[in-house]
Amino acid sequence: MPSDLTVYVDADACPVKAEVYRVAERYGLKVYLVANDIMSVPRDQPNVELVVVSDRFDAADDWIAERAGPAAIVVTNDVPLASRCVKAGAYALAPNGRVFSPDSVGMSLAVRNLMQDLRASGEVTGGPPPFSKKDRSAFLSALDLAVTRLRRQIRTQG
């Protein structure tokens, strides 16, 4: 059953591409993997398309943000991209299952900017914790919930 929903994946460092493929196949979703370089995509899933953009800074983010809207799910760890997409009406989701909502994305952006400033001044070293099985499971649940909610919303509005 084809869906009007589209999933955009900020794909260069995305650890949950296989999970996106599984959910997309189950629901008949179109998926765009947006990256700065060529990567493999499943040959048996014609609904998954690789979009290779230039290596210009934020080229992938710009491509996704220009297309994100109310019938889109954006998978990204990039908080500024998530903010742009949420403002456009899209559902933005981090690979660990965290949802970027209109209420939370502003705080996420502020924390991200603060941490960037602290790292630049040498105050903070290290990065985020390693990606875990729990993160992967939380992402699958969050993506499934997002698809269900957005499909219901599209049916109600249409």
Score class of each variant (00 low, 15 high):
residue 25 E to Q: 01
residue 90 A to L: 02
residue 35 A to W: 09
residue 149 R to G: 09
residue 72 A to F: 10
residue 18 A to R: 11
residue 18 A to T: 02
residue 123 E to C: 07
residue 44 D to M: 08
residue 148 T to H: 07
residue 65 A to H: 14
residue 134 K to Y: 13
residue 114 L to Q: 13
residue 73 I to S: 05
residue 76 T to H: 08
residue 101 S to L: 12
residue 4 D to Q: 13
residue 24 A to F: 04
residue 139 F to T: 03
residue 82 A to E: 08
residue 121 S to W: 10
residue 49 E to F: 04
residue 93 L to M: 13
residue 124 V to S: 01
residue 42 P to K: 04
residue 123 E to Q: 10
residue 115 M to G: 02
residue 11 A to W: 14
residue 45 Q to H: 03
residue 49 E to C: 03
residue 22 R to I: 00
residue 16 V to P: 06
residue 79 V to C: 07
residue 108 S to N: 11
residue 131 F to M: 02
residue 22 R to P: 01
residue 74 V to W: 13
residue 53 V to G: 03
residue 156 T to F: 06
residue 43 R to P: 09
residue 109 L to R: 13
residue 94 A to T: 03
residue 2 P to S: 00
residue 142 A to K: 08
residue 54 S to T: 12
residue 145 L to R: 15
residue 119 R to C: 12
residue 79 V to I: 15
residue 104 S to F: 12
residue 25 E to V: 00
residue 71 A to I: 00
residue 5 L to W: 08
residue 112 R to V: 01
residue 37 D to H: 15
residue 95 P to W: 05
residue 111 V to A: 09
residue 89 G to V: 09
residue 128 P to V: 01
residue 134 K to T: 04
residue 13 A to D: 00
residue 70 P to N: 09
residue 80 P to E: 00
residue 71 A to L: 05
residue 19 E to F: 03
residue 131 F to P: 03
residue 137 S to R: 09
residue 64 I to L: 04
residue 50 L to N: 01
residue 116 Q to M: 10
residue 53 V to E: 10
residue 67 R to L: 08
residue 9 V to R: 02
residue 1 M to T: 03
residue 117 D to K: 12
residue 107 M to E: 06
residue 95 P to K: 12
residue 16 V to I: 06
residue 110 A to E: 05
residue 61 D to F: 14
residue 40 S to Q: 10
residue 74 V to E: 09
residue 58 D to W: 06
residue 132 S to P: 08
residue 130 P to K: 04
residue 119 R to K: 09
residue 149 R to W: 09
residue 121 S to T: 01
residue 93 L to F: 11
residue 97 G to C: 07
residue 91 Y to L: 10
residue 75 V to H: 11
residue 77 N to T: 04
residue 115 M to K: 07
residue 33 L to H: 08
residue 34 V to I: 02
residue 65 A to I: 03
residue 87 K to G: 05
residue 98 R to C: 07
residue 38 I to R: 14
residue 30 K to T: 13
residue 107 M to Q: 11
residue 20 V to A: 02
residue 109 L to Y: 14
residue 95 P to S: 01
residue 40 S to P: 08
residue 149 R to E: 11
residue 79 V to F: 13
residue 70 P to M: 13
residue 133 K to W: 14
residue 131 F to G: 01
residue 23 V to L: 11
residue 156 T to C: 06
residue 136 R to V: 01
residue 104 S to H: 07
residue 139 F to E: 00
residue 13 A to C: 09
residue 73 I to D: 03
residue 5 L to Y: 09
residue 89 G to L: 14
residue 140 L to W: 12
residue 121 S to R: 14
residue 86 V to K: 15
residue 114 L to E: 07
residue 152 R to W: 05
residue 77 N to M: 11
residue 26 R to W: 05
residue 99 V to K: 15
residue 42 P to Y: 01
residue 46 P to D: 01
residue 31 V to E: 00
residue 48 V to M: 07
residue 50 L to H: 02
residue 111 V to P: 06
residue 133 K to C: 00
residue 135 D to H: 10
residue 66 E to T: 02
residue 116 Q to Y: 07
residue 112 R to Y: 11
residue 118 L to S: 05
